[in-house]
């Protein structure tokens, strides 16, 4: 019963909303809001058909490349900045400034420098989602528990071992927060970078559909993009739950105690 109840709660509202959309749009003659059945047809035929390899895959590859670069650079710099207080003081205003720049505005500049090919898109994604990762890592490293840090020093744990067994684990919850934030920025930039000039990609295909007034296809593309965002954040949560299982367990124990 309890399972049925949960199931009902999880699927109830989405089903109602879906049915509502289906029914209200069924006989729609409004050009902009075509019947949902038409949209789903296009979703299956186009997006899960040829476009999956032609447009979705290139987008995802660029996303993965940019995100990976941002993660490596952001965590490395974050650890350095978090460790050395002088460096942090020196760079804090600069970093605050770079973080505050809305990432899409650098697209026009990067377009000048790197052209409109893959390099530009990967750099845009990496540049934009690096800041939350960097700043959160720095904050996590800075806030390493002082008792742990003193203990490590007393046992003469330093260098790589200190990084591996003290700094990185302590900072990982904050790092995860930064990586999660970075991921949603990365998806946005993946789309934006394709809106300006591209020959393939999700964002490109959706805008193409909109410009040629292929409205059901456009809606299907938007749904595809939504699904992608949802699935990626689900995937992230799964990975995070495994990675930080010890931390979530610790928190539960602390709360219970």
């Amino acid at each position: 019963m309890a399972f049925l109840r949960r199931f009902g709660f999880a699927l109830g509202l989405p089903l109602v909303l879906f049915a509502l959309w289906w029914v209200t749009s069924a006989n729609s003659t409004n050009f902009y809001f075509p019947p949902l059945s038409l949209i789903l047809d296009s979703l299956v035929a186009e997006w899960f058909g040829p476009r999956l390899a032609d447009d979705v895959l290139p987008s995802l590859m660029r996303l993965a490349a940019g995100y990976a670069i941002a993660a490596v650079v952001g965590i490395t710099l974050g650890v350095l900045i978090g460790t050395y207080k002088r460096l942090r003081d020196l760079l804090e205003p600069v970093l605050e400034f770079f973080r505050a720049i809305p990432p899409p505005v650098i697209v026009p500049i990067l377009m000048l420098i790197f052209g409109i090919e893959n390099t530009m898109k990967i750099v845009v994604i990496a540049f934009g989602c690096m800041w939350p990762i960097l700043l959160n890592t720095a904050e996590g490293v800075r806030a390493v528990d002082s008792v742990l840090s003193d203990t490590a020093r007393t046992y003469r744990i330093s260098g790589a071992a200190r990084l591996r067994y003290l700094i990185l684990p302590s900072a990982s919850p904050q790092m995860a927060a930064g990586l999660r934030q970075g991921l949603s920025v990365a998806i946005i930039l993946m789309v934006i970078s394709e809106l300006f000039a591209a020959s393939d990609g999700l964002g490109f295909a959706i805008v193409q559909a909109q410009r040629s007034f292929a409205i059901p296809e456009m809606w299907a593309g938007m749904i595809m993009l939504g699904l992608l965002g949802f699935l990626l954040s689900l995937l992230f949560r799964l990975v995070e739950n495994r990675w930080l299982a010890w931390y979530h367990g610790l928190r539960r124990a602390q709360r219970a105690g």
Binding site: A10, Y32, V191, L195, G203, G221, M222, G229
Partner: peptide, 19 residues
């Protein structure tokens, strides 16, 4: 509403641009 919110939230806002 939990499942609906969890589904709608990660949808990138830029998906709405064409609309």
């Amino acid at each position: 509403t939990a499942s609906t919110i969890e589904f709608l939230r990660p949808i990138p806002s830029v998906a709405l641009i064409p609309l």
